[in-house]
Nucleic acid binder design. Structure first.
Length: 698
DNA sequence: GTCTAGTGTCATTTG
DNA sequence: ACCAAATGACACTAG
């Protein structure tokens, strides 16, 4: 049983894999114990699902003997279940590891954890061994939203899959059992940095250890052999207790110094190829002893030549100097998550174990050695070219970073602004990309393996982090990426200036380009949880690992938005993208509102027109009615007039001529018969008086 | 192929 | 002066 070093989480895992990469160049097939990182709140009975699925030669484990120990993946729960965040961590192992101060990755859910049985020479298995947690975990950019957690792999899964945050880290120091469900990039970045710094610190702390090991190594070797044999004979519950003492020895640097010196001598004696002299015969006796007994079946046989897949951020982490573009959160820097990892030994199919390649025990040897090396030593000893490849690969496997997504973002041929910096990315370029699938089944982000694409799509859909690309993790892919000078930030300068009408454009362009059987899966990566197409900003945000949803970014109040930008751990590119997303989102909403308003205004005006027209018609009808009434009254008056004059008689009894006389009504109600001349002159006088009065008023 | 409605985006104006 | 909202104009797609 080997234990992870206290600094094993992000930085530790990185250093570890660096050595593995050195091994990879030697094409060494190693039979190693598997180091597992268990979720901090893993409880007895919790089941860990393998990413390989029930049909793969994979195993999953239950973290505690109470749940039956190791079990086949197909016997376990198909998906991780929600753990009770309020439940305190239990188990002796967990307490032990916590006591060691092992960095703790808080999470509340076990989705799928790294345990992948690796057959001898099984490259995919090796990939799985070295990094499946990120791919198997779900959540990704949206992990903090949906509360999903990411796993840190014992073989070096992307540490950023871990949903740790500065706040969570700080809280863990105070209350380790405090649940932390939210994921933030800031936390992950801070955790990365903290772990790298921690690793460097430990390397200094252990420098003294490497000075004293030589004189005691035989004695210690015997002691460890005895311990391991005892472990092999003990039941699991006692095993935990036994391992605790083993931990203590590791902590004290007593049993590790032996291997440290061995490795150091090997490295120093083989400067050009520090591992050249390593062979089965060079394996410390402990390795064989450990591989015997009850743990003889708990070894992974790993072909590390194929193992370059994940946990390759060492270069990136080391390059993150003061001038890097990442914003350091001082809180995150000072706070060190102290939640322990629980380490269990691995299990593999005994039939798949490659005989004669047992280097068990080499892993802790490397591990300890790395602890004793300074960062300069590491940089000096390790081929920088490996770092380049690692970094490039890390881009492919980094949490939430979807190279395929990015590449397709570039390849979106249609642009609404003509600002696309690469106009050659038309359908032809896509076709070329398609053709590259067959040339190198590992062009970044592409895979001819439908399962890979499916996993990729799933990875995308779920915002999974780290990305497990069994095929794309090969060196072939790395070379491809290197050839294309892929750079995420530069790439997103394209993205940010590519006014692509993505959703429809994607469908209209990619579908006819015939990715038979795969286009649908690729298209699925453009769908969100609700099934609709992801917008460009959503895909950009996902590809650039923006820890917020577009909706959040857009709808967030200004103050919250600004504080969010200052609080989180975001690169300049991310900040720029977030601001652009917010601006575009706001403007999009504003445009929608504007159009809606305009439409409403038009509708209102149309209503006004209708109302006015109706009113006009009403008035016209009233006017007609009035005219009719007036005419009727005139007619009646005329008839009455003639009726009156027909009955009037003068003094001589003759009828009165209505043309010469007129009827005039006085104020007292009496009616007078006057000659028209008088009536006309009287009307003129009254009219003149009225005019004068009106003139006076004016 | 053309037309139209709808949409996203940018540049500019407005409050 | 600065910012967000509003708006005009353009490009693009689907029907």
């Amino acid at each position: 049983m080997k234990y992870l070093k206290p600094w094993w989480s992000d930085g530790g895992g990185l250093l570890h894999l660096t050595i593995l990469l050195s091994l990879a160049e030697l094409r060494l097939d190693l039979d190693l114990d598997l180091y597992l990182l268990l979720p901090p709140r893993t409880l007895p009975g919790d089941e860990l699902l393998l990413p390989g699925g029930p049909t793969s030669p994979a195993y999953a484990l239950s973290p505690f003997p109470a749940s039956g120990g190791w079990g086949r993946a197909d016997q376990l729960h198909p998906k991780g279940r929600e753990l009770d965040p309020a439940a305190p961590p239990e188990g002796q192992l967990l307490r032990e590891v916590r006591a060691l101060g092992v960095p703790f990755i808080p999470c509340t859910r076990v989705d799928a954890w790294l345990v992948h049985s690796v057959a001898a020479g099984d490259a995919d298995g090796a990939h799985a061994l070295l990094g499946t947690a990120a791919a198997s975990s779900a959540g990704g950019v949206g992990a903090g939203v949906d509360g999903g957690s990411q796993a840190a792999s014992g073989g070096g899964g992307d540490p950023r899959a871990d949903p740790s945050s500065p706040l969570a880290a700080g809280e863990e120091e105070k209350a380790p059992a405090e649940p932390t469900a939210q994921v933030s990039d800031a936390g992950r970045h801070a955790t990365e940095e903290n772990e790298v710094l921690r690793a460097v610190d430990h390397s200094f702390q252990h420098e003294e250890n490497e000075q004293r090991a030589s004189t005691q190594k035989e004695k210690q070797l015997q002691q460890m052999n005895q311990d391991e044999n005892k472990i092999a004979d003990k039941p699991a519950w006692e095993l935990e207790k036994t391992t605790e003492s083993s931990h203590e020895r590791h902590q004290n640097g007593t049993d590790t110094s032996l291997f440290l010196e061995d490795l150091f001598q090997l490295l120093s004696s083989q400067p050009e190829n520090p591992l050249e002299g390593i062979s089965l015969g060079d394996t410390p006796p402990l390795a064989a002893s450990i591989s015997d007994g009850m743990y003889s079946s708990t070894h992974y046989n790993v072909n590390f030549s194929q193992a370059l897949s994940q946990d390759v951020n060492l270069h990136e982490a080391m390059l993150l100097g003061p001038d890097n573009t990442f914003r350091r959160d001082p809180i995150a820097r000072t706070s060190q998550p102290q939640e322990p990892f629980l380490q269990l030994n691995s299990i593999t199919n005994p039939e798949q174990t490659l005989p004669g390649t047992n280097l068990t025990g080499f892993l802790p040897l490397f591990d300890n050695q790395m602890r004793n090396l300074t960062s300069q030593d590491l940089l000096y000893d390790l081929d920088i070219n490996i770092f380049d490849e690692i970094n490039l690969t890390s881009l492919a496997t980094e949490e939430g970073f979807d190279p395929m997504l990015v590449s397709q973002l570039f390849e979106e041929p249609d642009s609404d602004s003509g600002l696309s910096l690469n106009s050659s990315y038309n359908s032809t370029s896509v076709a070329k990309s398609n053709s590259s699938l067959s040339l190198c089944d590992g062009a970044i982000g592409y895979s001819t393996d439908p399962e890979d694409l499916e996993s990729l799509s799933r990875h995308d859909l779920e915002g999974a982090v780290g990305g497990y690309y069994p095929e794309s993790s090969k060196l072939c892919h790395v070379g491809h990426r290197s050839d294309t000078n892929f750079d995420a930030d530069l790439a997103f300068q394209h993205v940010l200036h590519n006014h692509t009408y993505h959703s429809s454009a994607l469908e209209s362009t990619s579908e006819p380009l015939s990715w038979p059987g795969e286009s649908q899966k690729i298209r699925s990566s453009y769908l969100n949880d609700t099934g609709r197409n992801l917008s460009r900003d959503e895909r950009c945000a996902k590809a650039l690992r923006i820890p917020f949803t577009v909706d959040e970014i857009v709808r967030m109040p200004v103050d919250s938005f600004n504080s969010m930008l200052s609080r989180h751990y975001l690169t300049d590119t991310q900040v720029s993208l977030i601001r652009d997303i917010r601006r575009r989102g706001k403007n999009k909403v504003a445009a929608q509102n504007c159009r809606k308003r305009k439409l409403d205004e038009i509708l209102n005006l149309e209503d006004d027109v209708c109302n006015l027209q109706a009113k006009k018609e009403t008035l016209n009808r009233e006017r007609v009615q009035c005219h009719k009434a007036i005419n009727t009254m005139k007619q009646k008056l005329h008839e009455l007039y003639h009726d009156v004059f027909s009955r009037l008689r003068d003094d001589q009894g003759r009828p009165v001529n209505p043309n010469q006389y007129a009827l005039q009504c006085s104020h007292d109600g009496s009616v007078l018969i006057l000659p028209k001349e008088l009536v006309t002159s009287g009307h003129k006088k009254e009219n003149q008086k009225g005019k004068r009065k009106s003139e006076r008023r004016n």
